[in-house]
């Protein structure tokens, strides 16, 4: 089976009077069903790597293939379109739109993609909420939810278009250990039973130990 994501020789240098190298010659790949933890000290470049893998940022050098599709030559709009269907992001903060209800937040990527009908979108969103233990919360606005609930809504949103790749940047950073554990259990299930690749940045060693594979970053280099 093809790797969900495959990166070769990724380097990201921030231009400037003193150029800063965030990521150095990283080779990385993730298979379906794999939950991978990227750990490292702060400033080691783990988030930068994640943004490169998620096509949010462009590498200075190197190439990325997502589900076998090369991405180097794509323009911004094409990258956005690929992100929409193939990548789901979860950040440390939930970043839910405060004016929209939980249900509207989750259907947002589906509406943008326009893949399902309106009724199917709602049904799919309700299914995701049920999967994540959020039945009955769909009509609330984000500020009516607890931190753990919001993060689960953000995961549901990331899953909206059924992407094969889930990228999480310190997803438990603003959660207590119980909720953090819950989020990781969800990630594990997403990888094992749905055949997705889940890559998460974390500095929590206990949680990292739950993953199938751990990689470590030092000064922008990846150490297996």
């Amino acid at each position: 089976m093809d790797a969900v994501i495959e990166a070769r020789g990724l380097t990201r240098i921030l231009p400037g009077p003193v150029p800063v190298t965030l990521v150095r010659e990283v080779d990385f790949q993730a298979q379906p069903g794999e939950l991978v933890a990227i750990s490292g000290a702060s400033g080691s470049g783990k988030s930068s790597l994640l943004y490169l893998l998620g096509l949010l940022d462009r590498p200075t050098e190197g190439s990325i293939q997502i589900e076998g599709r090369p991405t180097t030559t794509l323009n911004d709009s094409a990258l956005a379109a690929l992100r929409l269907e193939a990548v789901g992001f979860v950040f440390q903060f939930h970043f839910l739109l405060p004016e929209f209800t939980v249900l509207e937040n989750i259907t947002l990527p589906m509406r943008k993609r326009g893949a399902f009908g309106q009724k199917a979108q709602t049904e799919r969103a309700m299914g995701l909420l049920a999967d994540l233990g959020l039945q009955g919360e769909e009509a609330k606005t984000p500020d009516q939810l607890s931190g753990g609930q919001r993060q689960r809504v953000a995961i549901a949103r990331a899953l909206a278009n059924d992407p094969r790749l889930i990228l999480a940047d310190e997803p438990t950073g603003s959660l207590d250990s119980k909720n953090g554990r819950l989020v990781f259990d969800i990630f594990k299930r997403l990888a094992e039973s749905d055949g997705r690749a889940v890559i998460t940045v974390t500095h929590d060693a206990t949680l990292a130990a739950l993953c199938h594979r751990q990689v470590h970053m030092v000064d922008g280099r990846l150490i297996n």
């Binding site: 998620g54 949010l56 911004d76 709009s77 956005a80 379109a81 690929l82 992100r83 929409l84 269907e85 990548v87 992001f89 950040f91 970043f95 739109l97 947002l108 990527p109 943008k112 993609r113 949103r157 278009n161």
Partner: peptide
């Protein structure tokens, strides 16, 4: 922030 999240989600410029 909302703009950033919309972009990460796949909204183009």
């Amino acid at each position: 922030r909302d703009i950033a999240i919309l972009k990460s989600m796949g909204f183009d410029p």
